[in-house]
């Protein structure tokens, strides 16, 4: 599958084509960093509410809108991804790729940190957290501003998954490089977590669902379809019983 789809101009028809990936990362960073549950839920709710209001403004003159929070939700809950196939990327592959990309000396300190990310090292308590270790290695070496929207990030991730399914390692590496060379260190930290499918937010998927909509967890249990959950329950005033009529 071609890996160049993300270079095409984004459609102006979706919210995701307007929202910088950096804004999602800032939100995730805040959710993860703050200690209390009310604060964590507030940051997610602020982002979600902004998305819904923008959605209303963007689609105000349209009928049968299928656009939803799904492009963001699938990045926030990557463990529930069903549409995209596996990335086939683990920490060790990322470590080797970063060493090559950043031209790090193979026997140097930073290469060792990436390759032996499980080893207890510094005082930061980030042993075993590859994304965190990569962040500190990448920080002085990455773009200061990210350029990608949430839609473009999803397109890049599609390309990575498609190239993995096609067993084309060269294109898989190329599509991953396209993604990371356009992202800041902070964005890459979150991209790594999305690819590894463990965001470590300190907030459960049940809580994320309950903030999105009181019936979201139930609908997801029935359908295991995140896109359907986001589309059908986009409007918080619509209940699952209203949706059920359309579903069955």
């Amino acid at each position: 599958m071609a890996s160049s789809s993300a270079s095409q101009p984004p459609s102006k028809k979706t919210v995701a084509s307007h929202v910088p990936f950096a804004d999602l990362c800032s939100t995730l960073e805040r959710i993860q960093t703050c200690k209390s549950r009310p604060e964590k839920t507030k940051y997610f709710k602020d982002f979600l509410d902004s998305w819904r209001k923008f959605h209303d403004a963007l689609h105000q003159k349209e009928k049968d809108v299928t656009d939803s929070f799904y492009p963001a939700m699938r990045l926030i809950l990557p463990q529930l991804e069903r549409e995209r196939m596996a990335y086939g990327i683990k920490e060790t592959m990322l470590a080797k790729l970063y060493i090559e990309l950043l031209n790090l000396p193979k026997d140097g300190k930073d290469a060792a940190k990436l390759l032996h990310y499980r080893a207890p090292a510094g005082s930061r308590g980030d042993a075993g957290d590859f994304a965190m270790i990569a962040y500190f290695v990448l920080k002085p070496r990455s773009p200061k501003r990210g350029r990608l929207t949430i839609e473009q990030v999803n397109e890049h991730l599609d390309a990575i998954a498609n190239n993995n399914a096609a067993k084309n390692k060269g294109l898989l590496k190329k599509s991953l490089l396209q993604l990371i060379t356009q992202s800041t260190a902070l964005e890459q930290k979150w991209l790594i977590r999305m690819i590894i499918k463990d965001l470590k937010l300190g907030i459960s998927q049940q809580t994320i669902f309950s903030i999105f909509h009181p019936d979201a967890a139930e609908l997801h249990n029935v359908t295991t379809d995140l896109e359907k959950v986001c589309r059908q329950l986009h409007d918080p005033s619509v209940s699952l019983s209203d949706v059920s009529i359309t579903l069955f």
Binding site: V15, T27, R30, S50, W51, F54, L186
Partner: peptide, 16 residues
């Protein structure tokens, strides 16, 4: 395009 709303106007985020 004047008709297209701006995301920035909806989401106030201090960049980290």
């Amino acid at each position: 395009d004047a008709d297209v709303p701006r995301w920035d106007a909806f989401f106030k985020c201090n960049k980290l």
